[in-house]
Write a protein that binds this DNA or RNA. Structure first.
Lengths: 212, 212
DNA sequence: AGAAATGTTTGACAATCGTCAAGCATTGTC
DNA sequence: GACAATGCTTGACGATTGTCAAACATTTCT
């Protein structure tokens, strides 16, 4: 009886603890979101904690409460970023009933990504470059890289499947190719080159059927 | 007669002026070289003028004498970097007499680049990412990108030529592919993954003949 | 309602940054 | 060899940085 009471109390405390932790993590993510905005605006090199705080509902001191240090914050940003972009094209893959539909859906989404989320993507390339210097970023960056590779692979293999074929290259090669093309198009697009998006689309439209 | 004397004096002064300017530019490049070393070590975000100076024969104040500001120095570094890497593979292309020889020469050079110049290359990816944020870097970065694309294209088209073929893809696509592969291999290599280099080589060895 | 725990702000800290003026050293000129 | 021009160092400036302790505010619990 006394044991039952004790274990019941323990369960309540555990539940409360779990709630606390959930709240804690929710605020962490909220701050990471705000940080991502500023990072996408200014880039890693020019982003300070005070600048991030100014673009949020909080003041600069709060970060020390939720993060060990600045690197910890950035790491949290990087791994949070993953969830935001990895499933971006999955709806297209799932709903498309033909090669043409998949292609068009992919191209539309590609153009939209380039137009509306250019800042987030330049940040991704920035942080990936930082990982070449800072070991702390590598684990998450490699993981995201792999997820993006898988995402592209899902599209390509589905596209091939709809044509009764199989991709002619490995997932790694395919990702390298698309990543390179996208990165190049992003730079042009940010340089106010209006031809960047249509050129990328045309390139992909021509390329994909020859590979898959 | 007086006119001749005057014009002769003018020529002498012009020559002296040109010499001065040459010396000035030589020192600029020397400082840019030193800056490149530090940038390759620390990355753009963590490189300060004082740190650069400490890895050189000078003190931090000298940069203001040779450069308008820090951005001017970095720009000089970026455009100077171009000359250091763009002709890297040209000797291989020129001397190879067969497809096999060209392939092997290219692979050896690729491995050597990854092993010995990893720092310079991570800097390149870093600066290219910076160009996504800082307009001042874009012109030079785009120019270097184009030069690298041309370099890859020279190799590929020569390789195709030696087989009586023509590359199956455009220069842009080819560069995107190799750039993506190299960037990925670089990250692995810097993470002490000993398999990074052989995997890249094998990938290229398999890939190149199918494209060219 | 009062006490305790949690969340957030504030302000200060030491360090570091880019910049620049003033001075010292070196070179070249007459 | 004195003088001027150039090259470079030194030291200081104001601003900004990450960090953190202390104060304050809010929520939670008893």
């Amino acid at each position: 009886m006394a044991q039952q009471v004790a274990s019941a109390r323990k369960r309540v405390l555990d539940a409360a603890e779990a709630l606390k932790e959930e709240k804690f993590n929710a605020r962490r993510l909220e701050l990471a979101e705000a940080a991502l905005e500023t990072l996408g605006e200014l880039g890693y090199a020019r982003t300070s904690l005070r600048e991030i705080a100014q673009n949020s509902a909080f003041t600069h001191g709060v970060f020390h409460y939720y993060f060990r240090d600045k690197t910890d914050l950035i790491c949290c940003c990087v791994s949070h970023y993953k969830a935001k972009c990895v499933t971006r094209y999955d709806q297209v893959t799932a709903s498309a009933q033909s090669r043409e539909e998949l292609m068009e859906g992919f191209l539309v989404k590609l153009a939209e990504t380039l137009r509306k989320e250019a800042r987030m993507h330049r940040l991704w390339y920035d942080l990936r470059a930082q990982a070449l210097f800072e070991e702390a970023f590598r684990k998450d960056v490699v993981e995201i890289d792999k997820s993006l590779e898988n995402m592209i692979w899902r599209i390509a293999s589905r596209y091939a499947e709809l044509g009764g074929k199989r991709p002619a290259v490995s997932a790694g090669v395919l990702y390298a190719l698309f990543d390179g093309l996208f990165q190049n198009a992003l730079l042009k697009h940010l340089s106010n080159d209006n031809g960047a998006i249509p050129e990328l689309l045309e390139e992909v439209r021509r390329l994909l059927p020859t590979i898959c």
